[in-house]
Each structure stands twice: as structure tokens, then as C-alpha cells.
């Protein structure tokens, strides 16, 4: 019932089918083991709880990648400028842009913008400092801005 939903979440963080499969399997195992300890009765709450488990499992999987933290450290500081869009961009384009971000940027951006975690919480989950989380978010935004600008140009030229 929730397998597609959870698989998409895992895939969004890992960007790899095999890793997403592994993360989903482990997430289901965790859900089966811990569901008896909870007293969740509403579906919305259950869905959010399962999503949290899937995200945590994906992050654990992500932390196994050796390059993940190196990427976080090696990216240079870039000045941030406001990003604007005319709202004509398609949803799939935006999703693809997020999925095309490097692991570190994508993870921090997803946790902060989509899941709504604060920098302290992100830092705790990823084992980094809050300032690193902030800088990663700033860089992710810059990269997304560049991508959106490119996409706008391509739309203009095609039209």
C-alpha cells in the first residue's frame, strides 16, 4: 500500500534503485518491528511515521557512501543571489533538478526545504555541524538557481 510512496522517498535521497530497494526493505523491517510498540490509530500519522523511518534509513544508507561527506567539505563558497521563476516550469523538471544535485546538497536541501527540519536537527542526523548544513543549503540553492536559469533559457529558445 505504502511501498511506492516509501520507495520514492528512498529513491529521492539515494538516487539509486538498488540502494533504494535496500533502504525500503530495511525500512519495512523497522516498521514491522516497531509498529507493535506504537499506538498509532490515524492513517496520516502512520504515513508520517513510516516516512520518517524511510528517511532515516535512507540517510543511514547515504552515510555509508564514503564520498558523501567529502563532497560536503570540498564544494567552494559561492555568493547567493535571489532566484526567480516565472512559474511555468513543470513539476517533473523541478524534481529532476533536485534529483540531479550532488548527494550532500540534495540531502540537506530535501531535509530543510521539503521535510522541514532545522539546521541543528540536520547536523545531528548527518553528523555534521549546523554551519556546514547552512552552507550546503546555500550552495544547493545556487546550483538550483543556475539550473532553473538554464531551463528558462532553453524554454525561451524552444518557444
Amino acid at each position: 500500500m505504502y511501498s511506492d510512496y516509501l520507495y520514492r522517498i528512498c529513491f529521492r535521497y539515494l538516487c539509486n534503485r538498488d540502494d533504494a530497494h535496500d533502504a525500503l526493505s530495511q525500512s519495512f523491517l523497522n516498521i514491522f518491528n516497531k509498529i507493535s510498540e506504537t499506538d498509532i490509530q490515524e492513517e496520516v500519522v502512520l504515513k508520517a511515521w513510516m516516512k520518517r523511518i524511510a528517511i532515516n534509513q535512507s540517510l543511514m544508507q547515504l552515510r555509508k557512501r564514503k564520498m558523501f561527506f567529502m563532497e560536503l567539505d570540498l564544494i567552494e563558497e559561492i555568493e547567493e543571489s535571489p532566484l526567480t521563476t516565472d512559474g511555468s516550469l513543470l513539476e517533473d523538471d523541478l524534481v529532476n533538478m533536485v534529483l540531479s544535485l550532488p548527494d550532500g546538497y540534495r540531502t540537506v536541501f530535501s531535509l530543510y526545504v521539503i521535510e522541514g527540519y532545522k539546521h541543528d536537527e540536520i547536523a545531528q542526523k548527518l553528523g555534521i555541524t549546523a554551519s556546514t548544513s547552512k552552507s550546503q543549503l546555500r550552495k544547493a540553492r545556487l546550483q538550483l538557481k543556475g539550473m532553473i536559469e538554464k531551463l528558462d533559457v532553453s524554454y525561451e529558445t524552444s518557444h
Binding site: D4, R8, E80, T84, E91, D92, V95, K145
Partner: peptide, 24 residues
């Protein structure tokens, strides 16, 4: 990046998450 762009991205991803289409 402006807030509405982020919101747009967030909505797009949440919609994408809820899609019933198989992603493999």
C-alpha cells in the same frame, strides 16, 4: 532563492512522492 520557488519545488516533490506510477 525566493520562498515561493522553494514552495513550488516542495509541492512538486510532494506530488511526485504521491504519484502512483511505478518508479521501478
Amino acid at each position: 532563492m525566493k520562498k515561493h520557488v522553494e514552495d513550488q519545488i516542495k509541492n512538486a516533490i510532494e506530488t511526485w512522492d504521491e504519484k502512483p506510477a511505478d518508479l521501478g
